[in-house]
Write a protein that binds this DNA or RNA. Sequence first.
DNA 1: CTACAATATGAATGTGCGGTCATATGAATG
DNA 2: CATTCATATGACCGCACATTCATATTGTAG
Lengths: 204, 204
Amino acid sequence: MPKDTFFNLPEEKRQRIIEAAIDEFATHPFQQARVTAIADQAGIAKGSFYQYFADKKDLYTYLMGLMFQKKISYLNQDLMENRGKYPFFQLLREVFISGIRFAKENPRLVPIGMMLVNDKQLYHEIFGHYEDASIEFFRKMLEEAKDQGEIDPVIDPKLAATMLIGMLYSLTDFLIEDGKLDLDDMAIIDQMLYFAENGLKKKD
Amino acid sequence: MPKDTFFNLPEEKRQRIIEAAIDEFATHPFQQARVTAIADQAGIAKGSFYQYFADKKDLYTYLMGLMFQKKISYLNQDLMENRGKYPFFQLLREVFISGIRFAKENPRLVPIGMMLVNDKQLYHEIFGHYEDASIEFFRKMLEEAKDQGEIDPVIDPKLAATMLIGMLYSLTDFLIEDGKLDLDDMAIIDQMLYFAENGLKKKD
DNA sequence: CTACAATATGAATGTGCGGTCATATGAATG
DNA sequence: CATTCATATGACCGCACATTCATATTGTAG
């Protein structure tokens, strides 16, 4: 957690620091991200940085928290709270839509998330030692849908969850990185769902 | 390219160096990988390292080349050379099989590849500035299959290629990382194909 | 043996960066 | 004003590491 001094800062200055940090962490993995660069960019002295944060990781962890909250806020609250009441593929659509929308509206946050996911060690230091939360999330959804007879019984939920996450990650990355696709966002979502639905749905 | 002195080395010593490098690069991203660790592990003096390689990147680039060759060697030569003659889903099965087999037999190489893919900057320095080769490879296969009427005309080849790669990457990573899946390799491949086939195939 | 070239070695060099610290500035209080 | 407390600052320290270099060792040819 940042120190009190950080939260006592005028809103504007705090934002400058956060923005500078996002810039730096979006372009450099944690270890290579430079405190000096963040301080310079934010227009504060390096020493001041350590008035606000215990160290580099302190800021990083705080940022990850903000990001996580923001990501969550893109999910339709009603759908998520009453998961059981909605058909699986509608939930899946909602998750895809919010994922893409988040990525489009916060392009700088995407690479930060990617880098964290790829640094297993750091990931565990920050989020603790449990299975990747997003895989678990999808796995549970699939498990329930399977019980409801919505998806093909031969599908292994954990494997399918891994594949869905993989699709979503690599697509998000792709869209942000070079994003040359002659489709608008909704067409992309439709195709992903079409693909996933035909791949997973219970056959008659 | 390594210097002549490296290739003049007795086979056994050269192997030791390569193995040491693989160990180091499998556990540390390029920037954090230490020349000292490689030299120590290989049992050579640090100075000797620079008799063989211009610098750290020289060795790394060389390693990536070896890895690429090795990966290619897992593909069924006949199938690849006569791509046009085989049905798309058979080719896809072959690519999946060789990918998983490569990963299972060379587990230390997988994280190295993952880290490289995730370091866009380094990736481009090493492989040049063209589109991700594996996406292109899948995209072409899909394009051809679409012309043959094997896959659903609504599918966008580039998007589908991105999704397939994503599935394959994340699955490979998953298998190597913690790999707790109650399925054997063939069952995994079958499910991936089942998923992909139903998702992509032309509907009657 | 000798002389020359190729290779091996690890101490020394240089650099970049995270984190510390003594000091300065300024706001608030009385 | 004078005192105190919170915040700001950038020079400085220590360390880790890639790379260099002067020197030693080994191999080879005549």
